Computed example of a mutant assay.
Amino acid sequence: MAVTIRDVARASGVHVSTVSRTFSAPHLVNAETRTRVLAVAEGLGYRPNRAARALTTGRTHNLGLIVADIANPFFPPLIKAAQAQARERDYHVFVADTDEDPLLEQELIETLCKQVDGVLLCSPRLSNRVIERLRAQVPFVVVNRRLKGLTTVLMDVGQGAGVAVEHVAGLGHRRMALLTGPQSSWTSEEMLAAATLAARERDIELVVMGPNEPTEQGGLAAARAVAASGVTAVLCYNDLVALGLIEGLRERGVDVPGDVSVIGVDDSLPGRLNRPKLTTITMPTAAAGRMAVDLLLAAVNAGDAGTPTLARLETHLVVRESTAAPARDGGRSILTPT
């Protein structure tokens, strides 16, 4: 016979309502009692009926997680960490990919709102106006987009961009490019503001090129302009753009880092395996995924009484093989771009 909630209560020495709260609202149960009940439930093989619990509590115990591009290696560590964090709190996560399309993103949110208790938006492409309208339907937490009145987790890419400019300045570069990402990207805006300030302070000429697709193809497409620009260093929107740029420059006879130094953002696995290994700004994606789930569940439990939180996670520069001092002869000035 199937194990029931009454069996768990009897074996744990607690009331049925305590067992119910252990699974539906664990934060309301004493830690020692909660541990005992969970251990008994595990030993008996008890599994709560999620559908019945949803009818009783009004909670689905599901969360939505929407990312801009699941094929981008930036997102999988965040998704994996968010799923693990949610699982520890007896929540399931539905993952959806917008393919960088704001209209699809809106459609996915409107669909998920009916099936989840809250939504995590990672690097959203929607306008602030649309997000403000949609947030009335379900609690939101946004990752890497600053929105007034909305709980947000930010990876401080601006701080990393400033350090990247300082790095190339220290190597002796005096003219560098910034390859920005999509037009609606918060990350692009933060990188541009920080890189502009750092370049001014370090007496570096900054050439801004973009918007660009946040993919290897975006980097390949930008290679011609970079080769013709006379810059000796490039800070790219992400690692994929940087890897595409390196390949595009190689096709034009431009050596990295001998002629042009290249820096990415993310510290993804492809950049570590590339030759040259990519100098990059590491992003704490797993920590952001865990923190976003915790903040979202806090918002779900608090309802309208919750206070919006702004959490900022530090980034740092990882120096590898794709950056070096500029060539004495000016490097790329002796090359003929094709």
Rank of each mutant, 00 (worst) to 15 (best):
V318N: 07
P308Y: 00
L120N: 00
Q159N: 08
R135G: 06
L171I: 00
A84I: 11
G43C: 03
L245R: 09
T309I: 11
E105V: 00
L120G: 01
S188M: 00
V234P: 08
L313S: 03
V262L: 03
H92Q: 13
Q137D: 15
D267H: 06
L249S: 11
P182F: 02
L313R: 04
D329K: 00
H316N: 12
A286D: 15
K114G: 07
T279F: 06
P139I: 00
A325G: 02
G149N: 09
E247D: 15
A195R: 02
G303L: 03
N301Q: 10
G170T: 08
V231W: 13
L120Y: 04
L273I: 00
T98F: 09
I66M: 03
N144G: 05
T282W: 01
E107T: 11
A39V: 00
D259F: 07
E32M: 00
R89Q: 15
D99W: 05
G306C: 06
E314C: 05
P139H: 07
R59D: 12
E105T: 02
G13V: 08
V319K: 02
R202M: 08
F140S: 00
S17R: 12
V153E: 07
V319H: 01
Q83N: 08
A286F: 15
P124K: 02
T323E: 02
V318P: 01
V262R: 08
N301R: 10
R312I: 15
I281F: 11
P326I: 11
L240W: 07
S12Q: 01
N301V: 08
L192R: 11
V8A: 06
G13H: 01
N212H: 15
E166R: 11
L147R: 10
R135H: 12
T279G: 11
S184W: 14
Q183C: 05
T285I: 03
V234M: 08
S127Y: 14
G330E: 06
T307N: 14
F94T: 15
M1N: 09
D99A: 14
E321Q: 15
E251L: 03
A136R: 11
G303P: 09
H27Q: 10
R36Q: 04
T4N: 11
Y91R: 07
I246E: 07
V226C: 09
D266G: 08
T323W: 07
S17T: 08
T22L: 03
A81C: 05
M209E: 14
R89A: 14
P270T: 00
R332Q: 01
I281P: 04
L55W: 14
R328C: 06
A68I: 01
V168N: 04
T111I: 05
S24C: 02
V262M: 02
D117Y: 12
A51P: 09
G219A: 03
D259Q: 04
S268M: 11
H61F: 15
D266V: 00
E88G: 15
A2G: 10
E247Y: 13
G289P: 09
L154G: 05
Q217H: 10
V293N: 05
V138N: 06
